[in-house]
Amino acid sequence: MIPATFDYEVAESTEHALELLGGREDAKLLAGGHSLLPAMKLRLARPSLLVDIGRLRDLSYVRDAGDHIAIGALTRHKDVVEAPLLQEHCPLVPSAAGQVGDPQVRHRGTIGGSLAHGDPASDLPTVMLTLDAEMVIRGPSGERIVPAAQFFSGVFQTALEPTELLVEIRVPKLPSTTGCSYMKMSRRAQDWATVAVATLVERRNGSIGRAAIGLTNMGATPLRATQAEEAIAGGAAIVDAAPLIASGSEPSSDTAASAEFRRHLATVLGRRALEEAAGR
């Protein structure tokens, strides 16, 4: 399979990337290429210009930024998985990043590319939504910060304007009393999630306080299981909250699973992810 023809420019800096991106209507950014190139090979995507930002090494980092950890958008999945700062302060991120694709994909694919692609079956968008992470976006008129809850707007759609670039992701430092889990069910190890559930649970002397629950591939965007979260906040036990996890979701049916089975899986995986995060 061979993509349709396109022009290609290498961005030397973020500013240069923005300039190139703004200069052509259907230009696309190319980072690791692991979301875009497969679509182009199938000729489902036909950008006229690719702006290669893969050489902007200054956007590849994991930094302690005081109250949060800052992750450069061009940080590869492999480097996210292995980042000690994330393992210490926000292990949900490396745990999920380690489940993206396969080793070859993780060697090339980037966190920013994965988030900007906006695939509801993808792991990292759900994780960012669950963490209430923030997306730092740079555009022609400067920088803006968009919370994850407002970033994912539809199937392959995000808050990014065509002229904007995701530069950084900010994830919270989780207190040691917060447990987390990412439970993914896929048909094969390399596959996208049939369904996955991310959880954060505040552990309080043997009981649980607040919980955050995020769902992968249960609708057009990653979702929060707000009814279940509210039930737990109201004191419900995990087993009682779990049946509410799929409420309000609208998963699709495809060759991997029907919508009905996805709802069922979400409740099972959600219960297990809550229990794991709660340390049980």
């Binding site: 190890a189 390399q190 596959d191 060759t255």
Partner: peptide, 26 residues
């Protein structure tokens, strides 16, 4: 794992190795 699936109109739904499941070592 494996099943080549056609819809009622004769469209093959398992169109690539991403949805026709040849297993890996895992």
């Amino acid at each position: 794992y494996e099943e080549g699936i056609y819809d009622e109109d004769g469209n093959l739904l398992t169109t690539t190795m991403t949805n026709y499941l040849v297993p890996s070592a895992a």
